[in-house]
């Protein structure tokens, strides 16, 4: 394998980073909303949230990606593969992040919420200023872990025609007959990216260590 081939893989890894980063961000926002909806006192809301989590965690990501990629044109929405890929990856990751956050919301110290109530915070203020920030901190290790899963799962978007790291390795492997070297190199790049996310997670954990809950 030449240096040139490796550089092609590194360039393609840029797209993998982009797709994963955007999906991780969207999934954090969407996952927070879904977990709050799931914990709603209104049974219909809670059921909708639970169904979302159950469906997107229960169906293989590959099937979800194929479904979204093929469903959108049928519905008259014509989007490039990369958008379908980000939508699919975000919806699925959001379900896992919602489940992680649900556990964190459930283990919030009751006293903190009561203190905020006593201080005259409205329900919305308590959610924004007390429950969400603390739940995020409690769930941080699980959230970071899921982000690493998202990075690895992003290799599946290669099946909907997005030429990211896995697809590039595949294309190069079939044209150069060097599958061993190319897939090993791609694996190495994924490993480095996984470690980067893990390191970022640790940095955030350290920075968010204000006070004790």
């Amino acid at each position: 394998m030449t240096w040139q081939l490796f550089q092609l893989l590194v360039t393609a890894a840029g797209l993998t980073v982009f797709i994963s980063a955007v999906s991780i961000m969207i999934a954090l926002v969407l996952g927070t909303i879904v977990s709050v909806v799931t914990l709603s006192p209104k049974p219909a809301f809670a059921l909708a949230g639970r169904t979302y989590i159950s469906f997107f965690r229960g169906v293989p990501l590959l099937v979800q990606l194929l479904l979204i990629y093929n469903l959108l044109p049928v519905m008259g929405i014509d989007l490039p593969g990369i958008v379908a890929a980000i939508i699919g990856l975000s919806l699925c990751t959001a379900a896992f992040q919602a489940e992680n956050l649900r556990g964190a919301f459930a283990s919030l110290p009751r006293g903190l919420v009561e203190a905020a109530e006593m201080a005259g915070f409205s329900a919305a203020q308590i959610l924004r200023r007390v429950r969400v920030p603390i739940a995020f901190r409690l769930a941080l290790p699980a959230l970071a872990n899921e982000a690493i899963f998202t990075l690895r799962a992003s290799s599946l978007v290669s099946v909907v025609g997005v030429v990211e790291l896995t697809r590039t390795a595949q294309d190069l492997a079939s044209s150069t007959f060097l599958p061993l070297q190319l897939f090993a190199a791609a694996g190495l790049l994924y490993l480095l990216l996984s470690w980067t996310i893990a390191a970022l997670g640790h940095v955030m954990e350290r920075r968010m260590r204000w006070g004790r809950v």
Partner: peptide, 21 residues
């Protein structure tokens, strides 16, 4: 660490397409 840090699909490709080499 390598198995847990790389995508399952890459591992499969390595085994299925790289194996014959």
């Amino acid at each position: 660490e390598v198995t847990r840090g790389t995508p399952f699909l890459i591992q499969l490709f390595l085994l299925y397409f790289g194996g014959p080499f």
